[in-house]
């Protein structure tokens, strides 16, 4: 569904991505791993045209989106939902209005249908009945769940998750991991999860890619990842920095 070819991007002269190649298969979950600041989120933002690459291209359903102007990206973006690292809820709107927003933008006008879709999405993330709360009243985990509900309420074909479990406690992390898997099975969406959390990677992934020094260092299945003897891979999986006390 989505293909990244030879993607390169620099910020302030510092190369962040160097000729990255990735393929996301329809209905599968790809987990992109890497250390903080290695460019994982940058890859994700290129997939819906939030960033323009210096070189290379992104193909969505065979269409190159890299040269498309902002207004022509609308059709592509409506196929893809994105859960932002901070959830990016609109803080001036209640939970209900946050979820109704993408539906109204899709042209839905029937308020009863909107209410039903909002309630269904909140039920899916385990927050049924929380419609009237404001984002400021929610905990970090709840914000992520509402963000996820807003992402899926428009029934996208593909969901991008930017660090979905960062900063959450282990129980909430486990709950979000299950939710990602459940949504993928239930809605049959293509999922791309950017994380540095190995638990999330092992739980959610059909395939794993590891970004290292701006390049794709590894691209394979979870079993291949576990079996790898590559020191970069093993250090990352086991969380070894190489430093001593």
């Amino acid at each position: 569904m989505i293909e990244v070819r030879q993607l390169s991007k620099s910020f302030g002269g510092r190369p962040v991505l160097r000729e990255v190649n990735l393929t996301m298969e329809e209905g599968k979950t790809l987990v992109v791993l890497g250390r903080s600041g290695c460019g994982k989120s940058v890859v994700l933002k290129h997939l819906i045209g939030l960033l323009k690459p210096d070189a290379g291209c992104v193909l969505v359903d065979g269409e190159d989106i890299t040269g498309l102007p902002e207004r022509k990206l609308t059709a592509v973006r409506r196929k893809i939902g994105m859960l932002f690292q901070s959830a990016a809820l609109f803080d001036s709107m209640s939970v209900e209005r946050n979820l109704a927003f993408p539906l109204r933008e899709l042209g839905m006008t029937d308020e009863r249908e909107i209410d039903a879709r909002v309630a269904e999405a909140l039920d899916m993330v385990g927050l049924g009945g929380e419609q009237m709360k404001m984002p400021a009243d929610l905990s970090g985990g709840m914000r992520k769940r509402v963000g996820l509900a807003r992402t899926i309420v428009g029934r996208p074909r593909c969901v991008l998750y930017d660090e979905p479990t960062t900063g959450l406690d282990p129980i909430t992390t486990d709950s979000i991991n299950h939710m990602i898997r459940r949504l993928q099975r239930k809605l049959r969406v293509t999922s791309i999860v950017v994380t540095h959390d190995m638990k999330t990677a092992f739980h959610c992934a059909d395939r794993v890619a590891l970004l290292h020094e701006g390049r794709v260092h590894f691209d394979g299945t979870v079993e291949e990842l576990r079996a790898s003897k590559d020191p970069v891979m093993t250090d990352f999986i086991e969380g070894r920095s190489g430093e001593t006390d």
């Binding site: 990206l73 973006r77 893809i80 690292q85 990016a88």
Partner: peptide
């Protein structure tokens, strides 16, 4: 504030200019 909290990017990701 909307820009630094990714709300502007969220708008764009939903196809809203």
């Amino acid at each position: 504030t909307m820009k630094v909290t990714e709300q502007v990017d969220a708008l764009r990701s939903m196809g809203v200019h």
